[in-house]
Design a protein around this nucleic acid. Structure first.
Length: 710
DNA sequence: AAAAAAG
């Protein structure tokens, strides 16, 4: 194995050269460094700024959704040293992404890649986006769509999503490869459903989700097609010739086949929509009941969803955080975070948390779960807080656990301002960073711990962290926290928390996830007491704003297809199964002149944080990640999620795809599968209750560039 | 089987 770090001299010759022949030194500290052309990275920035202005000018909602960390737009985060003003000057940082030396020490040998870079216009390309102009022709079509931004409203009111449906129709012509007329026709087929979004709201008003099932039944006849579907998948070979002469129209047949899959809810209906159970509140609120009752034998892989009390968007109209029991200071803090009024999941869970109950909350990805537990948690601490407030060396009284460090950080960014608004302190306890600061914070005394299991356990065992006064514990991504490897530490940690409050009430446990199911049974039985279960009606994946596609690709063509897919201008997250593949892909994209970076467990924490920030800030367009980024991570305006490897299961699919389409925005999810995995991905889609177009694709195909352009 | 989470 070659040494990681070749000498600087070696590498200098590998380095891309500027047009003028000087080596493209990679930072201002390097000789030969040239600042990025001001045009390049800024173009995107300017566009963002305009977009943002456009939104706030409409005054429809704050510039950011209400769960999103305040700083992700580059606003104040003074306490984060690693940001040190960089966010204000993109040009500073643009070169850094070519700072290969920094990245080299990772376990990936860069040297194989050197030759590719030699012929290289890479720096030019990266510094000057004009090289990519051809692609941006399509952008012209799209710009207006995004500019006349009616979407922000959707995040507050699902009914406002109607315009999007119309946009759908607009989009058909935009595809402008007219060899696909049938497809737009199919779109029209689906349109009635979309247009009816407005009509669906009233239906939700009188809380009749069963009616939704009936709606599905209207489509029942089409279910016969369902049986056709499987053969279709397995007869892919028949279709290959068709593709050769590129007559995409045939895909429209897929659409037809597809519809039934989407609407064939019947097998699930009993589980999720059965209102009869729900008229009786007792069983609904009990965890055990649904667990025993709702396991379906055929459902051995997909665990039964928990029977939940459903809240609908219209329930929330006119409700304020104050109405839910949140105090004035916290409400103002929420307002500053962009949460002027509660989202459905928040309206559903906050009162129960404040009432002291254990809560299981299921809300779609990006539906505002962080505030749903964060705000009432702080409120409760105020309540039992009293005299211990701000006492030196006080033990924490609340604990929030997340499965990844990035998510813990992100949660803290939301919870910290809420806590501060009432004089409480949070601290982050997660691995990969020095102990000193965390231990120091604990010694000074904190009120709320936000962290990951490993380090929390570590500090517990070292006697630095006393959880015995923790009266509210939150598990975000709770189902994942029950996975092998997580469950045991989590159990140990929860066991170390208090059982009762100083006032003699039961200590609370809150479990949240977009895919909360009976996987959490072990924890629930062990730690929760008569939890109330909440979900948000009409917010399943099928009703989301995400367009799902599956591309069947030849294994040897996959990387080239990927490269074309990520070449678009929108922010893209690519998911890979392994760290090595994620790294390799990021390198490949960079070599192709695409601004890309990676996020996975082989990177040290500072690089993980930085690389994620590169995407958040828009300095790169493409993040190639393992499933470390699958859950919870919020990045503004991710327009495309690409699954270079199909997800393991339906949950992974839902969480990965939930990185886009947030706050009611549109997004596209493209999953690449080899021919042999078609059946598998169809099973996943079905369990996720997602309808997706499935089509073969090869490099250079229109469908690929079309998906990339968005 | 991989990834995540402690070092």
């Amino acid at each position: 194995m070659a040494p990681y770090n070749k000498g600087a001299d070696n590498r200098a010759s590998d380095r891309p050269r500027h047009p003028n022949g000087t080596p493209a030194a990679r930072s201002s500290k390097h000789r030969g460094f040239r600042a990025a052309e001001p045009t390049a990275p800024r173009q995107k920035q300017r566009w963002d700024a305009e977009e943002r202005r456009g939104r706030s000018a409409q005054g429809e909602r704050p510039a950011r959704p209400n769960w999103e960390p305040r700083d992700s737009g580059g606003q104040r985060r003074p306490e984060r040293d690693d940001r040190g003003g960089r966010g204000f000057n993109r040009d500073d940082r643009a070169p850094r992404r070519f700072d290969r030396d920094d990245r080299a020490p990772r376990r990936f040998d860069r040297d194989d890649r050197a030759p590719r870079r030699d012929n290289d216009d890479r720096p030019r390309r990266s510094f000057d986006r004009d090289d990519r102009a051809p692609r941006s022709f399509n952008r012209d079509d799209r710009a207006p769509r995004r500019d006349n931004d009616d979407r922000p409203r959707r995040s507050f009111d699902r009914d406002d999503r109607a315009p999007r449906s119309f946009n759908r129709d607009d989009r058909a012509p935009r595809r402008d490869n007219d060899d696909r007329p049938r497809r737009s026709f199919d779109r029209d087929d689906r349109a009635p459903r979309s247009f009816n979004r407005d009509e669906r709201a009233p239906r939700r008003d009188n809380d009749d989700r069963p009616r939704r099932s009936f709606d599905r039944d209207d489509r029942g006849p089409r279910r016969f097609d369902r049986d056709d579907r499987a053969p279709r998948s397995f007869n892919r070979d028949d279709r290959t010739p068709r593709r050769d002469n590129d007559d995409r129209p045939r895909r429209s047949f897929d659409r037809d086949d597809r519809a039934p899959r989407k609407f064939d809810r019947d097998d699930r209906a009993p589980r999720k929509f059965d209102r009869d159970d729900r008229t009786d509140r007792a069983p609904r609120r009990s965890f055990d009941e649904p667990e025993r009752g709702k396991f379906v034998p055929a459902d051995d892989v997909k665990l039964a969803k928990l029977q939940a009390e459903s809240t609908v968007a219209s329930d929330v109209e006119g409700v304020t955080f104050g109405d839910l029991g949140i105090g004035g200071n916290i409400s103002r803090a929420l307002q500053e975070l962009g949460a002027s009024s509660p989202f459905p999941i928040q309206a559903a869970t906050i009162p129960d948390v404040i009432a002291g109950k254990d809560v299981l909350g299921r809300g779609r990805t990006g539906s505002g779960k962080t505030i749903a537990f964060g705000a009432p948690l702080v409120e409760k601490l105020m309540e039992h807080g009293g005299g211990t407030k701000r006492k030196m060396g006080r033990a924490p009284r609340a604990l929030i656990l997340a499965p990844t460090r990035e998510l813990a950080l992100q949660i803290d960014r939301t919870v910290q301002p809420i806590a501060r608004s009432v004089g409480l302190f949070t601290t982050q306890i997660y691995g990969g960073v020095p102990y000193g600061r965390q231990e120091g914070a604990l010694e000074r005394g904190v009120d709320i711990i936000v962290g990951t299991p490993g380090r929390v356990q570590d500090l517990m065992n070292k006697g630095k962290l006393d959880l015995s006064e923790v009266v509210i514990s939150v598990l975000d991504e709770a189902d994942h926290m029950c996975d092998l490897g997580f469950l045991e530490p989590v159990q140990e940690i929860l066991s170390a928390t208090a059982e009762v409050t100083p006032q003699g009430n039961r200590a609370q446990k809150l479990l949240f996830s977009a895919t909360l199911d009976t996987q959490v049974a072990a924890l629930v039985e062990q730690f929760l007491h008569e939890p109330s279960v909440h979900e948000v009606a009409g917010e399943d994946q099928a009703s989301s704003t995400i367009d799902h596609r599956v591309l069947v690709v030849e294994q040897r063509e996959k990387d080239r297809v990927l490269e074309e897919l990520v070449a678009g201008d929108g922010k893209t997250i690519v998911f890979a199964r392994t760290r090595a593949y994620a790294e390799r892909l990021a390198d490949q994209f960079e070599d192709a002149g695409i601004r890309a970076t990676s996020l996975h467990g082989d990177l040290n924490q500072s690089r993980r944080t930085r690389n994620l920030q590169l995407l958040t800030s828009g300095r790169v367009n493409v993040l190639v990640a393992t499933d470390v980024a699958a859950r919870g991570i919020h990045v503004d305006d991710v327009s495309l999620v690409v699954q270079a490897d199909a997800p393991d299961d339906y949950k992974a699919y839902m969480h990965r795809s939930g990185r886009t389409g947030r706050a009611g925005k549109e997004g596209t999810v493209v999953t690449l599968v080899p021919r042999g995995r078609i059946r598998k991905i169809e099973g996943i889609l079905e369990r996720a209750e997602i309808a997706a177009d499935l089509v073969q694709a090869a490099p250079g195909d229109g469908i690929v560039s079309e998906l990339a352009a968005r």
